[in-house]
Design a protein around this nucleic acid. Structure first.
Length: 576
RNA sequence: CGGGCUAUAGCGCAGUUUGGUAGCGCGCACGGUUCGGGACCGUGAGGUCGUGAGUUCAAAUCUCACUAGCCCGACCA
């Protein structure tokens, strides 16, 4: 293609709204343009990359026998009412009405639509397993869109769904594992280093789930990893081994005056006790307006996701001061479990063994000391509520854990029968009995993957595309597009394109410096510079963006050499 | 939703403190000199100063309200 006729609006300045490299470079290279917060248009160069990522995904989906569909983005609200997500999803779900005042949603994901679509076609165990997917636009009214295309209000997702016989969970296991394998290949082929971590399944429902992450400073996920045995999990999900802290048996429980000590730190300082002997007490509010008391050892924090899952609610928030005081009569900062009757009390496992502990007395400026769990109070339940941190112990091997950040590119779930049950999907099994199929679902964020590729492949000059997703294979840079140089450039373009190589020729009437800068910024893997300097020797310059290597190649062999190099480079990103 | 910041030409910014009718760099157009790493000189086009109201003889500048965007926290591919 000719640069002069292609819309590639590169810019020199760093856009003020962009904070991370992938966002900055996508804008600077003329790949995307913002329409509104979290809503971006893809320009020709960006779209070419997007399509390449999509086709890698397609190839790997086909390879494991998934059928490609294309579903609408606007879905009757009725379907979402059947799955109950109309009620549970909250404001991130875009809702609208048609002229007949019927409810609709702009689909944030397609479990409902696919389940409804396939319901009529799953009648026999012979119809299973059924594996489907599509690549389409999704809508989520994100609380805070961020980092350009990394978290948008609309985004392209590859979402796949599988349906299986309920009695044969091995079928789901296999499909799930196949998908994990396909994801690994997809990301490898995009030139990405990913890791898979076990994750919380959130509002999707279902049991097991795994996320595919790219480690990155700008990631929004926190990943916990064992330095020893390979345990990896999303922090939301991560568990840890309880340390054995030896508590001494204490004397009688006593109420002590602790004026103004509202924080853990203040209490430990005032009473001269370690944080481990405190019983931290937090009041949470759940959607039905009820309050829950959550306890954890003073030096630890509550993992709200774990608490939400335990309570079976989609949202919780820490109750605010005034409300707690008004409705429960408890001064926040001095809350404690002792004597609490009106609220459900859950305790983290770390609380169970505390003896000689300290906790709020539900009275302003007073704490109880010498508190023994079980002797002085009994929570309704002990569960794991702990927010695992960097210095905790691996739940598997007891070794140390570390934490780093990552970008979540894909997520795979074993869904169970949440949707098939709600939609009354049933099939006749071999023995003539009526059964409900179980499901798996599997997503990849396409733009986010594209952004992550840049995040892992750039330098101070611009993007460095892996050839598998590069908008073009070769950038031809005629130092001056006229006379002999023009003739040779045109000839090269023709020959290369004839062999299926994608070429961008910079035929603009610009000074060479401008062309070099743009070529570096756009980041196409190979560049051929054609100028007097080389032609004197009957050669052109072949430059490799990633290594910075450059060499002069005889004109007559450049096409063959390029073909060879490109084939070699492509091979690195091929399946298997 | 809470906290912080911003809004002036296509992009990046100055001007706001101390009110006097808008400027710089890049980009764009034209002419010339240049031409293998974002050239130089000259000329020129381009602005409801985010929106609305108020104060004032006079508002980009002061006041109030609103809107949008960005960053930090709770959601997600």
């Amino acid at each position: 293609m000719h640069y002069s006729r292609t819309f590639i609006p590169t810019i020199k300045e760093v856009p003020k709204d962009a904070m991370i490299q992938s966002h900055i470079l996508m804008i600077r290279a003329g790949m995307i343009k913002k329409l509104s917060s979290g809503i971006y248009s893809f320009l020709p160069l960006g779209y070419r990359v997007l399509k390449k990522v999509e086709s890698i995904i397609r190839e790997e989906m086909e390879r494991i026998d998934y059928n490609e569909f294309f579903l609408p983005v606007i879905i009757p609200g009725e379907l979402w009412k059947i799955s109950k997500r109309w009620y549970s999803m909250g404001p991130e779900l875009f809702r609208l009405k048609d002229r007949n005042i019927q409810d609709f949603v702009l689909a944030p994901t397609h479990e409902e639509a696919f389940t409804f679509l396939l319901k009529d076609h799953i009648k026999s165990y012979k119809d299973l397993p059924l594996k489907v997917y599509h690549i389409g636009i999704k809508f989520r009214d994100e609380i805070r869109p961020r980092f350009g295309v990394m978290r948008g209000k609309t985004f392209i997702m590859k979402d796949a769904y599988s349906f299986h016989r309920e009695s044969n969970s091995k079928s789901l296991d296999k499909t799930y594992n196949d998908m994990a394998g396909a994801y690994k290949k997809i990301f490898d082929r995009c030139g990405l280093e990913t890791i898979s971590v076990s994750a919380d399944s959130g509002s999707m429902g279902g049991s097991l789930s795994e996320e595919f992450m790219v480690p990155s400073r700008v990631g929004e996920e926190e990943i916990i990893q064992c330095n020893h045995c390979g345990y990896v999990a999303n922090r939301e999900k991560a568990e840890s081994r309880n340390e054995n802290i030896s508590y001494k048996n204490s004397g009688e429980i006593t109420m002590a005056s602790t004026p103004g000590t509202k924080t853990i730190e203040a209490v430990t300082r005032f009473l001269k006790v370690p944080a481990e002997s405190l019983i931290k007490t937090l009041v949470f509010k759940i959607p039905d307006g009820k309050f829950v008391l959550a306890l954890i050892r003073g030096d630890l924090d509550i993992n709200e996701t774990k608490l939400k899952n335990y309570l079976g609610v989609s949202e919780i928030e820490q109750a605010d001061k005034k409300e707690v005081k008004a409705k429960l009569g408890i001064p926040l900062g001095f809350a404690g479990p002792i004597g609490v009757k009106s609220m459900h009390v859950v305790a983290d496992l770390s609380v169970r063994d505390i003896k000689g502990g300290v906790t709020g007395a539900n009275k302003k400026d007073y704490h109880y000391i010498n508190v023994n769990t079980e002797r002085d109070f009994t929570p309704d339940e002990y569960i794991d509520l702990r927010l695992v941190g960097e210095h905790d112990l691996c739940p598997l091997c007891g070794d140390g854990l570390s934490m780093f950040k990552g970008i979540e590119l894909g997520h795979i779930f074993k869904l169970g029968d949440k949707y098939t049950k709600a939609f009354l999907v049933s099939y006749l099994d071999e023995d003539g009995s009526m059964k409900t199929p179980i499901m798996g679902c599997y997503g990849i964020g396409v733009e986010r993957t594209t952004a992550a590729i840049i995040e892992q492949n750039y330098d101070e000059k611009g993007i460095i595309w892996p050839i598998s997703v590069s908008p073009f294979h070769v950038y031809i840079l005629p130092v001056k597009y006229s006379g002999k140089i023009q003739e040779i450039s045109d000839m090269l373009v023709e020959q290369l394109e004839k062999s299926g190589i994608e070429v961008l020729i910079d035929d603009r009437d610009e000074r060479p410096g401008v062309k070099f800068k743009d070529a570096d910024l756009i980041g196409i893997p190979f560049r051929i510079t054609i100028g007097e300097r080389g032609l004197k020797k009957g050669a052109v310059e072949l430059f490799e963006r990633r290594t910075g290597n450059s060499e002069f190649i005889k004109l007559e062999s450049i096409v063959d050499i390029l073909k060879e190099r490109i084939a070699l480079e492509k091979k690195k990103y091929e399946s298997e």
